[in-house]
């Protein structure tokens, strides 16, 4: 099932070699360990650059949105 969401989430991420790598997300009071970061892309919203991370665990695909201005993470897509 493919869902479009816009849910604020908690994220544990590492900042390593000039890269941001999401490691674990907390959504709907449940923790999900990220096993793979499959793709990263950016998009412009006016002058602001938004970062998107396409990540997955063993059963779910998540698309995460990072707003660098407010340092907020959102879950914007779910596929399982």
């Amino acid at each position: 099932m493919h869902e479009f969401l816009n849910d604020q989430i908690d994220v544990i991420a590492s900042f390593c070699q000039n890269r941001v790598i999401p490691k674990r997300i907390r959504w709907n009071e449940r923790d999900y360990d990220i096993l793979n970061v499959n793709l990263m892309h950016t998009a412009r919203e006016g002058q602001k650059r938004i970062f998107y991370f396409s990540v997955s665990d063993n059963t779910n695909y998540f698309k995460l949105k990072l707003d660098p201005e407010y340092l907020e993470w959102h879950l914007v897509e779910l596929y399982n």
Binding site: N38, S54, S56
Partner: peptide
Amino acid sequence: SVEQQANPFL
């Protein structure tokens, strides 16, 4: 291909 790269379940 880009979507299959992003989403391994595809």
